[in-house]
Amino acid sequence: MPAADTDRPRPKSVDPKNKVFALIRSRATAGPLEELAAKRKNIHIVVTDMSNPRKLDEAAAEVAKVTGGSLDVLILNAGSAGPETSTLPPSAFHGREDALENEIHENIKNNLLSNIYLVNCFLGLVRNGVEKKIVFVSSQCGDVEFTRVTGLATLLGYSVSKAGMNVITTKFGAELAQEGIKTLSMSPGWVNTDAAKAVTGDPEIRKFMLNAFHKIDPTVEGPISVDESVTDQLQVIQNLTEADSGKFLTHHGNHDEWF
């Protein structure tokens, strides 16, 4: 990806000089992505398994063939909200210890371990890149103060895994700083994705979430669009410097504007 201009960033695939790689589990469920890739030949779809380091090594090798062995920005966007028990608060797991272990383990596996695998498998390409940036798409749920103020007691495993990966991202930043590699954890905001619609589309759940979020920001009315979130995130990534490496920021590039 080339150095960004001074205007608000556009989706990177808009510029044909950029090479964009999308790692997915299956092409069978990637209809919209397939349509976009058919229009923009600089989008490359790579099928892999985030939980399998060998498969990720193969994916990195596939990317390297296209880029000549380098990658400017690695964005860790894969994740899962975990099993159905995500709707339970911690005390509800008393007497359900097996469910608690599954709640924690599934989220740690999907949202933390898999991302460590991904970084390690692609690190050689990032080392050869120009921008040398690793960005983890985190969540407000991984922030202690956000949880404390909103009083959101559910999404236990998801929150733990996001908070844990925030620390891991900082650890990578500390380890790789001398190589000029910068890392960042970033909340995308409350975004109107398909996954969010499946949850907050329910009027009662939406009302509950708004009541909680209003404790942080009384002006929030609902989720922002995917385009708005992505544009804001790209701005933060564009502005990432060594001074901010290892931090956990919002999509506005600060510590408190979560929406």
Rank of each mutant, 00 (worst) to 15 (best):
V20C: 03
K109P: 00
D202W: 07
D143H: 08
M209I: 10
A22F: 15
M50K: 07
S80L: 07
I24S: 05
M1W: 12
A177M: 10
V46Y: 10
N52Q: 12
E103L: 03
E175F: 03
A60L: 06
I224P: 03
S51F: 13
T170E: 06
V226R: 04
W258M: 11
V220G: 06
S138D: 08
L125P: 02
V226F: 01
T241P: 04
D217W: 04
K215S: 05
R40A: 07
I45D: 03
A38V: 05
E97D: 12
R8A: 12
A78C: 04
A212N: 14
I75E: 08
N107K: 10
N42W: 13
A153D: 09
A212V: 10
P2E: 15
A195T: 06
V144P: 00
H255V: 08
S70C: 10
N166Y: 13
G68I: 05
L88A: 11
V119W: 13
D15G: 10
L249M: 05
T250Y: 10
Q178D: 13
I104T: 02
A153C: 04
F21P: 06
E101F: 05
H255N: 08
A60P: 00
L113Y: 14
V149T: 15
H94P: 00
I216A: 13
A99G: 06
L112N: 07
V135M: 08
P2Q: 14
A28I: 07
D7I: 12
N128P: 05
K133V: 11
T193V: 05
A99P: 05
V236M: 12
V167D: 15
L74D: 02
M1H: 14
T250K: 08
S245Q: 07
T219N: 06
L113C: 04
Y117K: 01
M209T: 05
A22V: 15
S51R: 14
F172I: 00
T48S: 02
Y117S: 00
V199A: 03
L76R: 04
V73L: 10
S139Y: 13
G253Y: 01
V135Q: 07
T183I: 07
P223D: 03
R25N: 15
A99C: 02
L184G: 07
Q235R: 14
A243V: 13
H94Q: 14
T6E: 13
E35D: 12
N254Q: 09
N211L: 08
D232P: 00
T169E: 06
E58S: 00
R8E: 10
T250C: 03
D49I: 08
